[in-house]
Amino acid sequence: MDSEKQQELVELLVSLRRSGRQQSGLDPALIPPDNETAYRIAGAVEEKLGWQVAGWKIAATNQAMQKALRSNSPIYGRVYAPNVRTTPICVDVKSFCSPIPEVEFQACLGRDLPPRHKPYSSEEVAAAVASLHPGIELAECRFIHDEQFPPLSAILADGAGSGTIIYGPAIIDWREKNIAGQEVNLLCNNEKRRSGSAGKALGHPIKPLTWLANELSKTGIGMKAGQFVSTGTLTGMIRPKTGEIYEADYGPFGTVTLTFE
């Protein structure tokens, strides 16, 4: 994939982001040949947009999600300002690109994790977390999920389906709590639709967060204080309908509410 085609894909993805549009399929000549190229294009999209990176999303944190997303490893994408919001929120489902509410712990960084040669340990990453929150990631994709849906590398170039992070109040003394063992329920119109836990889905939110810190360190990007990180779905993916109200119930850790108008 030559530089001209890469730039063409950058321009397309920027246009789709700015206009809030989706398209069906992608010209085969514009499909990145590998993940490294895809992530480089995602960085160029950020530069062209000129939008502040307010956070990051992590996906495919376990084998089931990797199979669903056609990946053999976790993936990540940028979340742009002002798409980091506090609960509760109301959105127009038609104004989003095939939104998918995913129940996820959100970590807010209290210090930078800059690029460096030595890998970050989980202890170092945990120490950099200012607060941990119950949350929902409202994932989006600039490509319609139809028979023309492009391969994973195109999705990575689009930010791995990044959309909006919605978070609740900080979990008090989260380091002393059984975060991994807490059952979380996803309710739709007060009826339970899904349940799960960090322990079953990803072990503990610090595990994927450490993975991301080292991925962004290796590529010379790093993470900054104040950024939120959506650490991976605990309940899988679900497609909403207009009029539905979703509530992520984290038990003693709080709730997060999302209404589709």
Rank of each mutant, 00 (worst) to 15 (best):
R194L: 10
V45T: 09
T37L: 03
Q22D: 08
H133E: 08
K224Y: 12
D249H: 04
K57S: 06
G135Q: 11
P74C: 02
E215P: 09
W211G: 00
P252I: 12
A128G: 01
R70M: 09
V125K: 06
A154Y: 05
V129P: 12
L209K: 03
E140M: 13
I245N: 09
V14H: 10
L216V: 00
Y76S: 11
G161T: 01
Q182S: 08
R40G: 14
L156N: 07
E247N: 08
Y167E: 11
R142V: 13
K94L: 09
G251V: 01
A225F: 02
E140T: 15
E104K: 10
L209H: 00
A54Y: 03
Y120S: 04
A139G: 11
S95W: 10
D34G: 04
Q106Y: 06
V256D: 13
A29C: 07
I41Q: 02
T259F: 13
S95E: 15
L138Y: 07
E8P: 08
I89F: 01
R175W: 10
V91W: 01
S121F: 03
T164V: 15
M1T: 15
S162M: 06
G220S: 03
F143M: 09
P101S: 07
S73H: 14
F149N: 07
V229D: 04
A54G: 08
Y167C: 05
A139L: 14
T37W: 00
V91T: 02
P88N: 01
M237F: 15
A107T: 09
E140H: 11
L113E: 00
Q6M: 12
